[in-house]
């Protein structure tokens, strides 16, 4: 009979199940993105997932570690899917592949694989692509133009095709360029009203469905509330303040909460436990930091959305936050 110390009770959860639930919670938001932006989203998911799994397997092999358990924990798959959901759907095929391979190899395995990476691998991959290919990375297609044939033409053209003409700006892009050119929010909103209702509601709809998935994870205790609430508060509070001061120059908090990657970031990306703060209070501050940085980058930064950079910056701060937020041990003063 083997000797084994207490506790003997079977653990109630496991990492693969955790990852599966997060993947499941992504389904509604992903489905609506596919519906709105066409097959490009699916193609990205496919490319990124396949690359993620292949890279994970290759790296495990290179490091002399067993391959099957690493693939079975679904963490690579999740990182691939998260990165895919951040990418615009009209990219040449090698960009998602390159970004994912970078994320897994240099964002995860050089540090020692699952559990050891200081940065969120998906966001590292995204930042890498954004810095390397800034033009392609900010272009989201106008849905009516994203026909399957065109998608293939772009995906397999190797990036040579001029794609400006078939893509439309996201509301965050419009806000950024419009305000940059001296337009006002009211003017931009009036212009937006001239569009069909459809494109305007796209991002709020997507964000709403990711929020739904996030609430499911919260309700089932797969994630805890500190990080998502921190992110949303951190984003909404400065937005509200500045909007109250000057509604002509600053977008309202609701717009911020339901634009771009806000909900995906708050519930699915910032909550990656490996690279986040791990103390309860530290997580709240970590979330707040991300929210505030997202707002700052959106408002004054060089990029229309700032989730990736906000997460990476706060990844750097996580160990410090954990040091500062240690709870008082029972019986200590």
């Amino acid at each position: 009979m083997s000797f084994r110390p207490a506790p003997h009770l079977r653990p109630r959860n496991d990492v693969p199940n955790l990852m599966r639930r997060v993947l499941l919670a992504l389904v509604p938001g992903t489905a609506i993105m596919v519906w709105l932006f066409g097959g490009g989203v699916l193609l990205n998911i496919l490319l990124c997932s396949a690359t993620a799994l292949a890279t994970e397997a290759a790296m495990q092999r290179l490091r002399g570690r067993p391959v099957a358990p690493a693939l079975n924990d679904h963490s690579a798959l999740l990182a691939g899917v998260l990165l895919a959901l951040c990418l615009p759907p009209l990219l040449p095929w090698w960009m998602p592949v390159l970004g994912t391979a970078f994320a897994l190899a240099l964002g995860k395995h050089v540090y020692g694989g699952l559990g050891f990476n200081p940065f969120n691998p998906a966001m590292l991959g995204y930042a890498f692509l954004l810095i390397s290919f800034p033009a392609q990375m900010v272009l989201w297609p106008a849905p009516e133009l994203a026909t399957p044939g065109l998608l293939q033409a772009i995906a397999f053209s190797g990036g040579a095709l001029e794609i400006d003409m078939i893509s439309g700006a996201t509301p965050l892009d419009r806000l950024k360029t419009g305000l940059g050119q001296g337009e006002t929010i009211i003017g931009l909103q009036a212009e937006r009203a001239l569009f069909s209702l459809h494109p305007d509601l796209r991002w709020p709809l997507i964000n709403g469905l990711f929020l739904l998935g996030g609430l499911y994870l919260l309700q089932r205790d797969y994630i805890r509330w500190q990080i998502p609430l921190g992110v949303l508060l951190g984003l909404a509070t400065p937005a509200l303040l500045f909007w109250l001061i000057d509604p002509q120059r600053f977008a309202d908090p609701l717009f911020h909460l339901f634009a771009g990657g806000a909900m995906l970031g708050a519930f699915f990306i910032a909550t990656d436990p490996v690279s986040a703060a791990t103390t309860t209070r530290g997580r709240l501050y970590y979330g707040l930091g991300i929210g505030i940085l997202v707002w700052v980058i959106r408002t004054w930064g060089g990029y229309p959305d700032g989730v990736a950079f906000a997460v990476l910056l706060m990844n750097l701060a996580a160990p410090l936050l954990d040091r500062l937020c240690r709870p008082r041990i029972q019986g200590h003063s």
Partner: peptide, 14 residues
């Protein structure tokens, strides 16, 4: 009473 499942790295879930 079994806890013979594979041990994985800590993911700091807290």
């Amino acid at each position: 009473l079994g806890n013979s499942a594979v041990e994985r790295p800590c993911i700091r879930c807290g």
